[in-house]
Design a protein around this nucleic acid. Structure first.
Length: 607
RNA sequence: GGGGAUGUGGCGCAAUUGGUUAGCGUACCAGACUGUCGAUCUGGUGGUUGCGAGUUCGAGUCUCGUCAUCCUCGCCA
């Protein structure tokens, strides 16, 4: 159908007879000269019909509409000096058209196919096939292919097998909410779509596959975010006879391969590592962006809590009183400081108390707790801040604040305080333009094995197949769950959790005791994980693995704002697909075959 | 499940803060035009303001509800 693509022709092709096909990107009709820009995935070429063109040319290029699909025959010719287009690879030449035929005509478009347009994202998703014709999506799909290939190549060269695991599998309700699929053959029973190939990759290790990887789709029926989709893609890996060091170096080498391929940079290896406890203490986060130099100070443990009723009450209830120093932050406007407080509130905290530090003394809402009272002598402050009380001086000393800085504090229950501190740290870092420099990849290690649930129970922080740190196993026996560290690790890129993994349990008894610790009775554990526990009877290699969230990685690597931008056909925040209209109501007969009936009236769903 | 933002021709925005026939840009359509490349010029089609109710002489504008999209807390082993 074509001899060349639209991005292919150059000066050396002059006088070649060509057949081209593509979409009409633009027309410029000058009466006796017609131009058409013909576009395909490979580029854009200018077609022309003028007085030199055979008769069919002018006729063929008339009456075309944007995005019509056409096929043209013609001859490549050099453009006259001064009429070349240096912005286009094909800009030195054009095709003098001898005939053109319309293969498929396009209706009026919902939006222009151009790079400069500003269209609601919902519109782009509803007409994704049109959005895909534009260069941002073209570029991202290309980069995604290159990056996927780089990962595959690196892993296969390391001796990994690519193993496809089932999409119809068993429900594991202790994790995220499952997407369920009814079984027709065995009515009343259900498959679940995989939240991850976790158990199958472990079974592959029992099966002696030694090194497994898969670019795997995972489904989780939970609420969405800018960086969360109901189905997403992971680079999933597992290795036998290894420990965490082997996993770190493998993941580092495949990440380096992708950075080389996509960004043309060499990653500095090995990557920095930080234990979870240190990360939480210094950055109030298990995924800190270390490009941001701001650190969190625990004012209570520094003995620097002000006599402020809000702080006192929070501490009494076991909460956190912690703060950050924003270097040179007193240059921020009131509006900008308010936006930091708004970030704290948005993260669920009651608010954020702040003051600006000047040589004449602190200013702002918190300042009255820092200043010496009228009957007190102000403290002589070593960094030269006037009018401070002793408590005020200690407070600023703990934060290492000096004139010109801004200090922001959060007082709240630990979990909320952590979210809020992370939010204000990020916000302040962004406002002060502190977040600079090359991409920051970092390992967070020694995650806690368990997390306390709202009802006072415990559930696995990672998943129940994670091996505890051996030194902490004694604590497991004595029931001190919260202090047990795990051999789980996360990879963090610029403050985004890119992936996680762990050394797995390969001992049947240890696995059983973990099930017990998370409140799974032996019967339930046996019922749900019988296949795993049984497999563990037949010789299990020690194994460990990792999974990288590719959508998140690619969003960062390709400079996209959300993971939707790097997914060909993404879903909305309510997990619906604007293109196909999924999820949709199904026929009664379809449900009948599956032995299910609808409880919710249909009109509720359709409203 | 909670909080917040947004919703006006296909798209981007405006409408003197409750007052005539909802305006502009762009796209689209038609015509003109010897070289354009986000062409240009002229003309034209197209909306009752997401949906529903209410207040009012009068609602794009105020109130309540609802829906959709986005952000976010919870949630995401």
């Amino acid at each position: 159908m074509r001899t060349h693509t639209c991005g292919q022709l150059r000066a050396e092709d002059v006088d070649t007879e060509v057949v081209l096909a593509g979409w009409v990107a633009n027309r410029r009709d000058h009466g006796v000269v017609h131009f058409v820009d013909l576009r395909d995935r490979y580029g854009m070429i200018q077609l022309v019909a003028d007085e030199d063109a055979p008769e069919g040319g002018m006729e063929g290029l008339s009456g075309l509409h944007p995005e019509d699909v056409i096929q043209v025959k013609g001859v490549v010719r050099m453009r006259v000096e001064g009429q070349r287009n240096p912005d286009r690879d094909t800009g030195d030449v054009e095709v003098l058209v001898s005939s053109a035929s319309k293969i498929s005509s396009a209706a009026r478009l919902p939006f222009e196919i151009a790079d400069h347009i500003d269209v609601p994202e919902e519109m782009l998703m509803r007409y994704r096939y049109l959005d895909m014709r534009r260069s941002p999506m073209q570029e991202r799909m290309k980069l995604r292919t290159i990056a996927n290939h780089a990962f595959r190549k690196a892993l296969i060269e390391e001796g990994f097998y690519e193993i496809e695991t089932p999409m119809l599998t068993r429900s594991t309700p202790e994790g995220a909410r499952d997407y369920l699929v009814p079984s027709r053959m065995r009515q009343g029973s259900w498959y679940a779509l995989p939240q991850s190939p976790q158990l199958f990759k472990q079974l592959s290790m029992v099966g002696g596959m030694d090194k497994y990887f898969q670019i795997a789709r995972c489904m989780r029926d939970e609420d969405l975010r800018a960086d969360r989709q109901p189905e997403f893609t992971q680079l999933d890996m597992e290795m036998s006879f290894v420990d965490e060091e082997d996993v770190y170096s493998l993941v580092e080498s495949v990440m380096a391969a992708v950075y080389r391929e996509i960004k043309g940079v060499e990653l500095q290896l090995p990557l920095e590592r930080m234990p979870y406890a240190e990360s939480v203490r210094r950055f109030a986060s298990d995924k800190p962006d270390l490009r941001n130099p701001i650190e969190v100070v625990d004012l209570a443990s520094e003995g620097a809590v002000l006599d402020f009723v809000v702080f006192n009450n929070v501490l009494k209830d076991g909460g956190w009183v912690r703060g950050i120093r924003v270097p040179a932050g007193s240059s921020l406007s009131r509006k900008q400081v308010d936006s930091i407080e708004a970030a704290a509130k948005d993260a669920g905290a009651g608010g954020a108390a702040w003051c600006k530090v000047t040589a004449d003394g602190p200013t702002g809402p918190l300042s009255r707790f820092l200043k010496a009272k009228e009957d007190e002598h102000p403290v002589v402050c070593p960094v030269g801040i006037a009018g401070l009380s002793e408590a005020g001086a200690a407070f600023l000393k703990a934060l290492n604040a000096s004139p010109g800085d801004l200090v922001v504090t959060i007082a709240d229950a630990p979990r909320r305080a952590m979210t809020a501190l992370d939010a204000i740290r990020n916000k302040a870092g962004a406002l002060m333009d502190l977040i600079q420099g090359p991409d920051c990849l970092l390992w967070i290690t020694e995650f806690p094995l368990f997390e306390e649930t709202d009802d006072g129970g415990y559930h696995p922080a990672h998943h129940p197949f994670t091996c505890p740190v051996m030194d902490d196993v004694e604590a497991l026996k004595s029931g001190e769950k919260e202090s047990i560290r795990s051999r789980a690790y996360d990879l963090v890129l610029n403050g985004v959790e890119l992936g996680s993994g762990s050394v797995r349990i390969h001992d049947r008894d240890l696995q059983k005791s973990i099930f017990k610790a998370i409140g799974l009775s032996e019967e339930v554990a046996n019922e749900r994980f019988a296949f795993l526990l049984e497999a563990f009877r037949y010789g299990v290699p020690p194994h460990a693995g990792f999974a990288i969230g590719l959508d998140r990685l690619y969003a960062l690597l390709f400079g996209a704002d959300t993971i939707r931008d790097v997914i060909a056909f993404p879903k909305t925040a309510t997990a619906s697909c604007p293109l196909t209209g999924a999820p949709s109501v199904v026929d009664e007969t379809q449900m009948g075959e599956l032995g299910i009936s609808q409880l919710v009236p249909e009109n509720l769903n359709e409203a």
